[in-house]
Amino acid sequence: MNATAYNFAYLDEQTKRMIRRAILKAIAIPGYQVPFASREMPMPYGWGTGGVQVTAAILGPDDVLKVIDQGSDDTTNAISIRKFFAKTAGVATTTSTEQASVIQTRHRIPEAPLRAGQVLVYQVPIPEPLRFLEPRETETRRMHALGEYGLMHVKLYEDIARFGHIATSYAYPVKVNARYVMDPSPTPKFDNPKMDDCPALQLFGAGREKRIYAIPPHTKVVSLDFEDHPFSRYRFDAPCALCGADDSYLDEIVTDDRGSRMFVCSDTDYCEGRQAAGHRGTESAAPHKERVHG
């Protein structure tokens, strides 16, 4: 029971090869969920094991890794995953979207546009967009095979009939490359348009559900909608209280128990970058930041 010397990026090479094969297949069939033999990772299922396995399989010694959760580099689980790779792969880490070659994310797509050569790795809890309409995997796989997505349109239509709007605000379904309906992971629908024609490679890993899927660079990604009820983004209508940005997705911060609240960028790197460039919001303070090691 000595301290075990783990392989580069934790996973053994055979496992990485198996995952890379699944990734290649996923890239070849955009939006299709490829089953893979997901391993038990040293962090819990549901906490990013799929994303971690994809990142481990694609990471090389020269990569620069950024990890975000809810858009932020400083949330506890993002720190935990970043430390895991800093320790097991010894790769350089960053909080800068621009400088990163691999970005692992949970629930957000960075505000700064991604570029060619970058890889965005999403952590996915439930990869199946049809799951809450049909719980059986045997059924949903058949529906995908036949391109039978009527059930999804009926669901969206029923939303409109009941609420006047499509009542899906995150994990909003998209159609990839005019073929597969895909779950973008629980990102707010604000982020959906960023997936379309993106120059970066987008990989999705679901560890517990044992699925990998992908959107290759410059692939057409369309949010499902109706002609008379077109897709719309949601963003709270206010500038960021720290950097004044009026184009970024905002977190709502409750500041007391009397209903006061403020809105700040969920993407901390974007917000800090703007503040460093001299942009100010109504609540600006000197940017405080805990140093990230490794």
Partner: peptide
Amino acid sequence: VQATGFVEHLKLPHYVDFQSELGL
């Protein structure tokens, strides 16, 4: 191990999605 991970992942922050739901 799968079940406990996914049930307990509800402890992780979900405020980005929650904000989206609040808005709607």
